[in-house]
Design a protein around this nucleic acid. Structure first.
Length: 427
RNA sequence: GGCCUCGUCGUCUAGCCUGGUCCAGGACACAUGGUUCUCAGCCAUGGAACACGGGUUCAAAUCCCGUCGAGGCUACCA
C-alpha cells in the first residue's frame, strides 16, 4: 500500500507555525516512504475563510520548500461530494435532523453565534458504554467510551458540511492512509471514527503530534508573539526554520541536518509524546549556522546588497543571527554617522587620537605589522590607541568587525576618506 | 466540572520498551577564563534535571499503583 498523507489547513488565518510543523512531519513521512503528499484547503467555514489567507498558506509552504504532489484541493469545490455522502447517510438511517428547542438555542447563542432551528447529526444506536478506540502510531491505544464522545454534528443543512464530516469524506475520497496532525485533534478522532464506521469504511492510521507550546506551556498562539510563517520570512532561512521545527518533538542524531538527512532520519516511532516549547534563541542559533554556509552571492542577494565584495560576507555572517539585522553592518556600504567622542579609546588624550588618525591617513594603506609597530613606537604599545579610532572611523560603531577587515572591504581610497572625515570631526 | 493526553537540566532532548555500564549524556541559553582595540567567532571550564509518594527487586530515571502538576478538547469553528 502506498502511503498517502495530507496537510489540511483552513484559510482563516496566515500559515500558522503549528500547521507548518504538521505539514513538515507529513512531508517527511511521505518523502521517506515514497508516498504522496496532498494539500487540501479546508474552507467549509465560508464566513471565516479568506482567499488572501489561502494564498498566504500556499506561499508559506512553498517558501519552506514543502512541496506537495496533489492539490491544492478546495473543499468549497467539493460540495456535491459531501452532499451525496450526506444523502447516503440519511437514507441508510445513520444521519438525522436534530431539532433544537428555544432553550437549547439560547444556551448555544453565546458569542453572537447564529443558531439554526435544526442541524444534521450522526445517529449512534450503539451501546453508550462501549469503547471507541484507535491505535495511535505515536501514543499507542487511545480509547473513549461512546457516551463521552458527544454529539457528532455532520452539517448545518444539506448543503453545508461541517469539519468532522468533510474531513472524513475527503480522507476517504482521497485515499489518505495516514492522518498525521496535532494533538489538539485527539478528541475529534472518535467522532471521525464513528463517521467512518457509519459509512462502512476503514479509517486511516492516526498519529497525533505533540503541540508547539509558548513559554507558559500553553498552545502557541498570537499572544506568545510571532505565530505565522510570514513573520519569520524576513529573519530566517527556510532551511533553518524547517530544521528547527523538525526538532520540536523529534530527535535526530545531530543538530544541523540537510533535507536529505532529515528525511532519512525521520521516524514516526521517534516522535515524542509531550509538547515542546518554541525557543527562539535556539532557532536564532540554528539560523546563524545556516547563514554561515550560504553561498556568498546568495547571502548578498538576501540582504539586498549584491554589490558587496565577497570579502565582506564573512564579516557579517560570522556575527549574524537574523537576516534583518544585517542593517547593523551598513558601514560596509554606506559612510557611517557617529559622534566624534566615540573615536577616543578609553581615557586617551583626544590629541593623541587625532595624531594617530593623521598619521594613518597619510600613511594609508597600512598592514597589521605596520600598525603594530606604529602603536609600539608612538603609543607605548597601546594598540587600542591606534586600532580603536581607526575602527570607529571606518564603522562609526562601538562594536564592529576588525578595522583591517573593514578596510579591505572598503578599499584604500574609501578608507583614507573615512579617516580624514574622522579627523575633521575632531576639529 | 467532564473526557483525553502528557510529566528527565531554564529550553530542546539522550537514556525508559529489553531494570545494573546513569552519583543521568549532548545541544541552546547562562557564568568564568583564554585569544583580542570592540563585538562576534573559536577554545577551555562550571552551575543546572529523573514531579512526589508507595510498591516489586540484590538493584529503578527505567516495571506496577497512587498522588500532584501541566496541556488539549468540551461549537450549528477548523
Amino acid at each position: 500500500m502506498t502511503v498517502r498523507v495530507r496537510i489540511a489547513p483552513s484559510p482563516t488565518g496566515a500559515l500558522h507555525i503549528g500547521t507548518a510543523r504538521s505539514a513538515l512531519f507529513n512531508w517527511l513521512y511521505a518523502r521517506k516512504l515514497g508516498g504522496t503528499f496532498v494539500l487540501r484547503i479546508e474552507d467549509t467555514d465560508l464566513e471565516r475563510s479568506q482567499k488572501s489567507y489561502e494564498t498566504d498558506i500556499i506561499d508559506g509552504l512553498r517558501w519552506l520548500g514543502l512541496d506537495w504532489d496533489e492539490g491544492p484541493f478546495l473543499q468549497s469545490d467539493r460540495l456535491d461530494i459531501y452532499r451525496s455522502y450526506l444523502n447516503r447517510l440519511m437514507e441508510s438511517g445513520h444521519a438525522t435532523w436534530r431539532e433544537y428547542t428555544d432553550e437549547e438555542k439560547a444556551a448555544l447563542a453565546k458569542d453572537g453565534r447564529q443558531i439554526r432551528d435544526r442541524v444534521i447529526v450522526l445517529k449512534d444506536d450503539g451501546d453508550p458504554e462501549r469503547d471507541i478506540a484507535f491505535d495511535d502510531m505515536i501514543r499507542g491505544r487511545v480509547s473513549v467510551q461512546a457516551k463521552h464522545v458527544g454529539q457528532v454534528t455532520l452539517a448545518k443543512d444539506e448543503h453545508t458540511p461541517l469539519y468532522n464530516f468533510a474531513v472524513v469524506v475527503d480522507d476517504l475520497e482521497m485515499g489518505i492512509t495516514h492522518v498525521i496532525r496535532g494533538e489538539d485533534h485527539i478528541s475529534n478522532t472518535p467522532k471521525q471514527l464513528l463517521i467512518f464506521s457509519a459509512l462502512g469504511a476503514t479509517p486511516p492510521q492516526f498519529a497525533h503530534l505533540p503541540l508547539i507550546l509558548g513559554p507558559d506551556r500553553s498552545k502557541m498562539s498570537k499572544r506568545h508573539g510571532s505565530v505565522s510563517i510570514t513573520e519569520y520570512q524576513r529573519d530566517y532561512l527556510p532551511d533553518a526554520l524547517v530544521n528547527f521545527m523538525a526538532h520540536l518533538g523529534h530527535t535526530f542524531e545531530k543538530d544541523i541536518l540537510t533535507r536529505e538527512e532529515l528525511i532519512a532520519g525521520f521516524d514516526l516511532a521517534n516522535v515524542h509524546h509531550s509538547g515542546a516549547i518554541f525557543d527562539q534563541q535556539k532557532l536564532d542559533w540554528m539560523n546563524a549556522q545556516y547563514i554561515r554556509t550560504l553561498p556568498r552571492d546568495r547571502f548578498k542577494e538576501l540582504i539586498g546588497h549584491p554589490e558587496l565584495p565577497d570579502s565582506a560576507v564573512p564579516l557579517i555572517t560570522e556575527r549574524l543571527e537574523r537576516l534583518s539585522h544585517a542593517t547593523e553592518f551598513s558601514y560596509l556600504w554606506d559612510k557611517p554617522e557617529y559622534d566624534a567622542t566615540l573615536l577616543i579609546w578609553k581615557n586617551d588624550d583626544p590629541a593623541r587620537t587625532k595624531s594617530a588618525l593623521s598619521i594613518m591617513a597619510d600613511a594609508w594603506p597600512m598592514a597589521a605589522e605596520q600598525l603594530d609597530a606604529f602603536a609600539e613606537q608612538q603609543f607605548d604599545g597601546q594598540k587600542g590607541s591606534v586600532y580603536w579610532p581607526l575602527r570607529v572611523a571606518l564603522s562609526g560603531r562601538k562594536n564592529s568587525a576588525g578595522p583591517l577587515d573593514i578596510a579591505a572591504v572598503l578599499g584604500p581610497g574609501e578608507t583614507q576618506t573615512r579617516i580624514r572625515i574622522a579627523i575633521e570631526k575632531m576639529s
